[in-house]
Design a protein around this nucleic acid. Structure first.
Lengths: 180, 180
DNA sequence: GGAATATGTCAACGACACTGACGTATATCG
DNA sequence: CGATATACGTCAGTGTCGTTGACATATTCC
């Protein structure tokens, strides 16, 4: 997957038996470090569903729409635009896909028939659940860490793909260690 | 900025004097809630620098490159590709901008002259610092919250733009309250 | 009946990612 | 020394997802 540029200094030849290496970062963790961890954490957080979505020919935009429609059935277009902060042209493109392929259904509003109340079909709910599952699993794993899960630093590190944590930690260690 | 679709139920006419309303969410916060909070938190987290970048004609891709080159001077192209997980064509597009406009400098590697060691120029460091500042400020504010900042839920809520927290909270309250 | 609202749509464009292929300089190995 | 590998650059085409601007339609509200 990843090219070896950052992995070359592979000191420990041990088969990596340590389980929760989410911590192991010395102590100090500045805001600057957190900025970086948030980048890596979010990257892996959205990476999980991305793989599933690709099988359906969908992207992140579809995911966001599906997620909110699934969680808040009866959502209107205007509300969705408000949440996602995109233009209705952008929304319509992905919404058309989701409706056309039977993942989202619409019905006119009862009190205001101009509105389109959006809901997920059964298959939409299934897909949404699949996507939620992988993200919730990562989250649960991160939260299930030892008591240090309390610190945002540990939380974010635990959100990163386990295999990648050492890479990230090694990268970030370069800031004190210096002369590479 | 935001259209009023989600703001209409504006019960409290008070001029909003409460400072740290990061909490105020009942108690239960499922993984599903966290997924959503992470979306909103990240949205606002990247929104700050986006505004600055727009003044320079830069985008998020430029930000990421600038950030990592600033933090890890001497980074090579291969390492950067590893961190960002993009193709060299994508990287080159933004890197060319940053070098051409004097924010990033390159010099051949000493031990391996095929490598291009990347560093930030002074103006590059200044811009990177500006971008870091707004993100660190948001982070610091989130961490400076009362002791409840420990919980990822509170942390994420505190990362959301203060004006938006009530909107998000109201939206998420719809999941129990139901009949809208 | 006229104005505001909720939504749809056409057209063009920009940022940022991708693939595939090819070119060049430097390093390394036999 | 010559072959092969590596680090990087680049050309060409494509796709997703965001943008703006303008205009059409149905419905509601006054």
């Amino acid at each position: 997957m990843t090219s070896p540029a950052l992995r070359e200094r592979d000191e420990s030849g041990a088969p990596a038996a340590r389980e929760h290496d989410a911590a192991a970062a010395p102590a100090a963790c500045s805001s600057d470090d957190l900025i970086e961890l948030l980048f890596f954490a979010y990257r892996d957080f959205v990476g999980d569903p991305d793989r599933i979505l690709a099988e359906y020919g969908f992207g992140r935009a579809h995911h966001r729409v599906l997620h909110f429609v699934d969680r808040y059935p009866g959502l209107t277009i205007a509300e969705l635009l408000d949440i996602l902060r995109i233009t209705k042209q952008s929304l319509n493109r992905v919404l058309k896909d989701l409706i056309g392929q039977g993942y989202v259904a619409q019905r006119p509003g009862t009190s205001d028939r101009r509105q389109r109340l959006l809901t997920c079909t059964e298959s939409g709910q299934r897909l949404a659940a699949d996507l939620t599952r992988v993200q919730a699993r990562r989250l649960a794993r991160a939260l299930a860490s030892p008591e240090d899960a309390a610190a945002p630093e540990s939380f974010l590190m635990a959100m990163i793909e386990p295999d990648e944590r050492a890479v990230v930690r090694r990268l970030m260690a370069r800031r004190g260690g210096g002369a590479a």
